[in-house]
């Protein structure tokens, strides 16, 4: 069936070429859920077709993470094997993380990472036939905001859609913060790590889980009210 932007789509639907023809000639970008086959664009997963200028993608409610390069995720070290750590990022396979891909690490000076530690990492490569590879440094070999997440924090899981809503351009987390002191790491693999005083942690988790069913506009409007309400309970 031919579909247009903002339609509910199913795998196998063809995206009607009229969606592309009225854009000017520069290349269009196909995001997750769309596939090119014989010059036609087909949908490869169920959801809603979205467009932002030249970018097209399918938005869907997902709980299973499929690694994609350049995404920030929270991983838990499950194994040390030779020069690599095996890290669980919630994907179908464990990801590998070289001990050299930390800031200041050398062959002699290994980073102090133990099995069971949580890390905020970036997916470097994600190919269909290979295990995903992670790094804890940016392109300048600086750690930036990546790396070890301290053990005082609390990790919980949620849907992938919710993590995307939390990280939208409107910055709902910034609005919620106001004068409350907390530290958060949101991984696009559906894991959230929070470090704060005990009286903030519980309402913050409740608030985040409440946002699951709200749309992005509603979150933008109400997130700070919901958080304040939860803090009083």
């Amino acid at each position: 069936m031919e579909v247009n932007v903002n339609d509910v789509v199913l795998p196998g639907d063809r995206v009607s070429s009229s969606n592309f023809s009225n854009l000017h000639k520069s290349s269009k970008i196909l995001g997750p859920g769309l596939r090119l086959f014989e010059g036609q664009v087909y949908v490869s997963k169920g959801g809603v077709l979205k467009q932002n200028k030249l970018i097209f993608w399918v938005e869907s409610q997902k709980k299973r993470y499929v690694p994609a390069s350049d995404e920030f995720v929270i991983g838990i070290v499950t194994q040390k094997s030779g020069d690599y750590y095996k890290v669980d990022i919630g994907a179908s396979e464990l990801a590998s993380l070289s001990y050299l891909s930390f800031e200041g690490a050398t062959k002699k000076l290994r980073p102090d990472i133990k099995v069971g530690d949580a890390l905020y990492t970036k997916v470097l490569t994600a190919k269909r036939d290979m295990e995903p590879e992670l790094v804890c440094v940016d392109s300048h070999w600086k750690k930036g905001r990546l790396g070890f997440l301290n053990t005082n924090g609390f990790i919980f899981t949620c849907s992938l859609t919710l993590t995307q809503k939390l990280l939208s351009k409107n910055r709902p987390l910034e609005k919620m913060a106001e004068n409350r002191k907390f530290e958060i790491a949101v991984g696009l693999n559906g894991r959230i790590w929070i470090n704060a005083d005990t009286e903030v942690v519980k309402p913050l988790i409740n608030t985040i889980l409440e946002l699951e069913l709200l749309s992005e506009e509603e979150i933008n409007k109400n997130c700070s009210n919901i958080f304040s309400k939860n803090c009083k309970i």
């Binding site: 910034e174 958060i184 470090n195």
Partner: peptide, 29 residues
């Protein structure tokens, strides 16, 4: 065959222009 009219972008973070998820507020870190 058809020329490079489409670029494939596997990450949703780029499509939706998501921000970095590691944040700290009011002096926590």
């Amino acid at each position: 065959k058809f020329g490079k009219n489409f670029i494939i972008e596997p990450s949703i973070a780029r499509c939706k222009e998501l921000i970095n998820g590691r944040l700290s507020f009011n002096g926590m870190n």
